[in-house]
């Protein structure tokens, strides 16, 4: 039987999202984070939802902090290489900033820069 999801504080989850977003954007070959539908609708409606980072979501399952990052890649680097680098950078930074050791990063590339 699985253990129930462990909650982390709101501050930690917001810190994880902002850290992940900035770490991903710092990787060469990342054009922009890709907002999900909710954040995209919020943006065109005139604002952002507090605490959310467009393109980054977090959840905790079995004490593992899962970070989902969606971004658009540039055309000048191989998408697989950029995705690997984003995963490594986000994992390292989220661990360092939040102190949460068990971090799994899921990367989704939504554009390959054609």
């Amino acid at each position: 039987m699985r253990q129930p999801a462990t909650r982390i504080s709101r501050e930690t989850s917001v810190l994880a999202r902002t850290t992940a977003g900035s770490a991903a954007l710092a990787v060469p070959g990342v054009v922009d984070l890709q907002p999900g539908l909710l954040d995209a609708v919020a943006q065109i409606s005139g604002g952002l939802i507090p605490g959310r980072v467009p393109g980054v979501t977090t959840r905790v399952l079995d004490e593992v902090l899962h970070v989902d990052v969606q971004f658009r890649a540039a055309a000048d680097r191989r998408v697989l290489d950029v995705a690997r680098e984003v995963r490594a950078a986000v994992t390292a930074e989220v661990r360092r900033q939040t102190g949460h050791k068990r971090v799994v990063v899921h990367v989704l590339v939504t554009d390959a820069g054609v």
Binding site: A73, V79, L80, A83, R84, R87, V104, V105, H106, V107, L108, V109, T110, D111, A112
Partner: peptide, 15 residues
Amino acid sequence: LGEPDEQLTLTETAA
């Protein structure tokens, strides 16, 4: 994309 434990994905539209 990549290896099974890497959790990397690409949308079909982008590819």
